[in-house]
Design a protein around this nucleic acid. Structure first.
Length: 612
RNA sequence: GGGGGAGUGGCGCAAUUGGUUAGCGCACCGGACUGUCGAUCCGGUGGUUGCGGGUUCGAGCCCCGUCUCUCCCGCCA
């Protein structure tokens, strides 16, 4: 192949594997990439050569000296091929790939890297198990689907940055090694070598820093910010670490924060998907209304079903199971579902079973069939009561109404779950659409279900609606906060708030949750202190980047949009993290382990022998 | 911390529900083949059914323990 090297060509490639077209026919070209597929006809060998950009077919004739070597070469080996770009015969054109009109007829070839037999299959539809995929993630991300997801992620982040900057925001970095925060999720701790017995913490979010940037006069902050929380994973929640589009603004109202997010998210979702995206302004749903109608503070608005409260209809009714529960504080929520009276009995029986699996004591329902109402609880109700229910749910022939009777939060939880299940099972989830909404007016406080004490329901730094005076309310649970969530298709993308920038209001707000002045000073002294030297009213929000990309990619699991994710137990199976460390490292950090680590054999040095 | 599902050659799956030699596809090795694009055809190698114990004439299947993965609840201001 020295002849070709002498032509002054780049030693690896003159084009990518997605560049050659019919117009290149007759040219000499050089490509490098992975052997994606081989088709060996004995007398002729076809290789699909793949790189980041695409696939090009390489043709190898048996007269070539490298023919035998390429025949035996394993897929995913890396080669450089030089040859002439040749137009394919009309009947051999491959319309499925952009380079399908041509092929590269190999004249010279270098094997750059021989691949061993792969531990997982890359070509085709088959997907390896999670464990294998994560252990060999560097192979897994060669697969087209994951590769495209990561490109999408890159595009989304780039686009978001441009949008934020166009709106006058600036990106600032905040510390990764910081101090442990007393509220919220468990921190990841990092021991200090210089200060024996002391620890840094990784930030759960740059919350304090972005507020301090506002105090520092920067006005419009954003950051694609890494966040670290030592909490257990979910399908839509990456364990350990994730990224937020962290935003904070000075001298703003809640509506101005909404306008920024609506603009950026609408632009991003429109640009990176073909689906319909709700145009701004998005629906604002008060928290209590969301819990009543959808049984959730992250309602999936693609499902055209809504609950209503029918407690009063049942309070004095002859249906003692409900009336009795209502007398001791329960509510009754009704979910009308149009046009399902023809569903078989088994449909309803399974649903009852499902509801009981969720912790409900049962699932009552009524069927509107022509002029009559049927169902297991029909006999307990008067015509007047049935009329009231029909009116509450706008019931028509063929409709069915389900009832959830329980303490309010349990009724909402079960009803909300069944609303979503019915939406899915009945095929009534609106397709190809991103439905956004804001959940607003979150309560400032809630009652701790275990202790019964009044506790912050969300962010303790939120401004109570009505300010200082509002905190004098007789019932703290009635106080609302300038606290909001943005929700898309049933996925919570973000929480945010207008912050409490007044030390006096902070003391009082914390006092209601049982914190003394001294508690507040010691736990949040830095922020409190900053607010004593001139703090602008400010607020912000922090949409989750991973979840946005997950929605745009149409993936069910957040790992599919992260290059090197950890598994559910927060282990990196590829890098083998977390891992034991040497005794020397521990000594430098003034750390003595309480017990011998179970996999002590993997440590390079013996673990600490003494118990503390 | 709790509950559900799963673990069978390198990979993805099956095994008539306790029955004889654990099958299939891909990959791998060998052979045939000059136009395929998931090439095709012929032949072959490869398995202590996660691990340990138990029940049974007999266990991939049932029971107990244990490990691993996954989904959910708790948790995630």
């Amino acid at each position: 192949m020295t002849d070709f090297l002498d032509l002054g060509m780049h030693i690896y490639r003159t084009h990518t594997c997605n560049e050659l077209r019919a117009t290149h026919a007759g040219d000499t070209a050089r490509l490098s990439g992975w052997v994606f597929r081989k088709r060996d006809h004995g007398g002729i060998l076809f290789i699909d050569l793949r790189d980041h950009y695409g696939v090009t077919q390489v043709v190898v004739h048996p007269s070539r000296p490298f023919f035998d070597e390429l025949t035996r070469l394993h897929v995913e080996s890396v080669i450089t091929v030089t040859g002439s770009v040749t137009r394919r015969d009309p009947e051999t054109v491959n319309p499925d790939i952009p380079t399908g009109e041509v092929e590269l007829v190999a004249e010279a070839c270098t094997v750059e890297s021989v691949a061993e037999v792969l531990p997982l299959v890359l070509a085709g539809e088959e997907e390896a198990g999670e464990e294998a995929r994560l252990k060999y993630r560097f192979l897994d991300i060669r697969r087209d689907r994951v590769h495209r997801n990561l490109l999408l992620r890159s595009g989304v982040i780039s686009h978001v940055r441009r949008q934020m900057e166009a709106q006058g925001f600036h990106e600032y970095q905040t510390p990764i090694l910081t101090s442990s925060s007393p509220e919220g999720a468990r921190d990841y701790l990092v021991p200090s070598r210089v200060h024996p017995g002391k620890f840094y913490a990784l930030p759960q979010a740059p919350q304090m820093f972005k507020q301090l940037l506002m105090v520092g006069g920067f006005d419009r902050y954003f950051q694609i910010a890494p966040c670290f929380r030592d909490e257990d994973a979910r399908a839509d929640r990456s364990p350990g670490e994730f990224y937020q589009l962290d935003i904070e603004m000075s001298f703003v109202t809640q509506d101005e924060v909404f306008a920024v997010v609506e603009s950026v998210l609408h632009s991003t979702f429109t640009r990176f998907s073909g689906k319909t995206v709700d145009s701004a302004p998005w629906r604002r749903i008060p928290y209590r209304e969301a819990m009543l109608k959808y049984g959730s503070d992250k309602p999936d608005l693609r499902i055209p079903l809504e609950m209503c409260d029918v407690t009063e209809v049942f309070r004095q009714s002859g249906f003692k199971a409900f009336a009795g529960a209502i007398a001791s504080g329960a509510v009754v929520r009704a979910l009308p579902v149009p046009g399902i009276k023809t569903q078989p009995r088994s449909f309803f029986d399974k649903l009852v079973e499902y509801a009981m699996g969720l912790g409900a004591k049962g699932l009552a329902y009524l069927v509107w069939d022509g002029d009559v109402v049927k169902g297991p609880i029909r006999k307990f109700l008067t015509d007047a009561e049935l009329g009231a229910l029909a009116q509450a749910g706008a019931m028509r022939d063929g409709d069915v109404m389900f009832f959830f009777c329980d303490e309010a939060s349990a009724a909402a939880r079960v009803g909300g779950d069944i609303r979503c299940k019915l939406g899915r099972d009945l095929g009534r989830v609106e397709k190809d659409v991103f439905r956004f909404c804001w959940i607003v007016d979150f309560p400032m406080y809630e009652r701790d279900s275990e202790t019964g004490a009044v506790a912050f329901s969300h962010n303790p730094f939120s401004m109570p609606q009505g300010g200082l005076e509002a905190l004098d309310a007789a019932d703290p649970l009635s106080i609302l906060a300038y606290q909001y969530d943005v929700v898309c298709n049933g996925v919570e993308l973000s929480s945010g708030a207008i912050r409490n920038h007044s030390p006096e209001i902070m003391y009082k707000a914390f006092a209601l949750a049982g914190y003394s002045r001294e508690d507040v000073e010691s736990r949040f002294g830095c922020l409190l202190n900053a607010f004593r030297y001139g703090a602008p009213p400010h607020g912000g929000i922090a949409p989750g980047i991973d979840r946005m990309v997950m929605l745009l990619a149409g993936e069910e699991n957040i790992r599919e949009v992260i290059a090197f994710p950890m598994n559910q137990k927060a282990q990196d199976l590829m890098m083998q993290a977390p891992a034991t460390v040497s005794e020397k490292q521990l000594r430098e950090l003034h750390i003595q382990l309480r017990g011998a680590p179970r996999e002590a054999g993997q440590a390079k040095a013996p673990p600490a022998q003494k118990e503390p």
